[in-house]
Nucleic acid binder design. Structure first.
Lengths: 203, 203
DNA sequence: CACCGCGTGACACTCAGTGTCAATGCGCCT
DNA sequence: AGGCGCATTGACACTGAGTGTCACGCGGTG
């Protein structure tokens, strides 16, 4: 009753998913990635092992999955930037999205990022997601400039450089335990790469 | 007899390792990553399952392991470049190493790269190795310029950009089935990123 | 009330990866 | 030659990730 704008089934799914993610992150942060089994996670969340794999494709996914939305958000942001903006400025705004998400809930984000960066299996998965981000940004940059990414190297390089900056900033932010300001670091990083993004050779 | 410069035990290890790698690559290329089990690989190589894991830490490793040597080679090359050379030139020479290795045995390399790039699990592992390459190049760049990579963003960004170029070239080379010239593509890519590597903001 | 569809739990199974131990083979020393 | 130590191997057992299958229960519907 009331207003099932989202079917109650949908809310139920969210609930289970969140419960699982929460339990997992809690345990993983304490005992480390290899120190926790799926059985412990599902026991903490109060669901069956089988159900876990109905929500997440793998143990890694429960940590990394939220990244797919951030990838979409980034791409959407880039798509909305005015076309007369320089490539570096547009990409800077796009890359700010995930970094801003960290700043909003730095406590939690720091725990997750630390876990990812120092767990090889998670780091590998994380980088693969980033590759998808790059692909999305690449086609978007190509669209902005009217360049075919299959023919021209520039779109892929531009997207890659932007994410290189993101990565460098994220690592620094994590290593400093959140002490350094991500936004300032990102500006600094983009000051370095901007000459390549907006340079004569680029466009 | 003759000259056991390398202990016979060592040669034996190489033999087993090569046998395993060969069998694995053969099978994986044909049946796909998930279509092959370790048992099939070891049966083809004529060793026990346990032995496989004495040589490779995981199923992924048998495909990706050779990359560690390429990482060392790259870093060594960068270390040997004259210090008065521009950063972009030095990094270009370093990144040429792995690309050159592809060109030497393009037949085989193409098969492996294809397998890696279109198998998510392998791609993830591949990117993680590249992250190690980047770390090595980062400290090396820092050393060249007398910059502390923990303080300055530039070394990490420079190394990251160089590998972004490498990655873009590798993908293009693979997508074109080896038709395009890696060396030419790399020059093209470095023409884009060089302004950032050697630009005023950099050093 | 009977029906239907979906999410769930229970169970069994495959496969990756690890620890342990006994057997084997090779180099070395006496 | 014979014995000793060291390293590699195979066999076996075990844990944990991931998947297929099926029967149950619950909410909505004619």
């Amino acid at each position: 009753m009331s207003r099932p704008e989202v079917s109650m089934a949908e809310r139920k799914r969210r609930l289970v998913s969140d419960e699982l993610t929460e339990s997992a992150l809690q345990l993983l942060a304490v005992k480390g990635y290899d120190g926790v089994t799926i059985d412990e996670i599902v026991a903490a969340a109060g669901v069956s092992r089988r159900t876990f794999f109905r929500y997440f494709a793998s143990k890694e996914d429960v940590v990394v999955q939220f990244l797919v939305d951030m990838g979409s958000d980034m791409r959407a942001e880039l798509a909305e930037r005015p076309v007369d903006e320089s490539t570096s400025q547009a990409l800077l705004h796009a890359v700010r999205i995930p970094l801003h998400a960290c700043a909003v809930d730095s406590e939690r984000a720091l725990r997750v990022v630390r876990l990812i960066l120092r767990t090889p299996a998670l780091h590998a998965r994380f980088l693969e997601r980033q590759a998808h981000w790059r692909d999305g940004l690449t086609t978007q940059v190509g669209q902005r400039l009217g360049l075919a990414p299959e023919t021209e190297l520039y779109p892929g390089l531009a997207a890659g450089m932007a994410l290189t900056a993101f990565d460098a900033v994220l690592r620094r932010w994590c290593d400093s335990d959140g002490a350094e300001d991500p936004a300032a670091l990102l500006d600094e990083a983009f000051a370095v790469i901007a000459p390549a993004l907006d340079g004569a050779a680029g466009r």
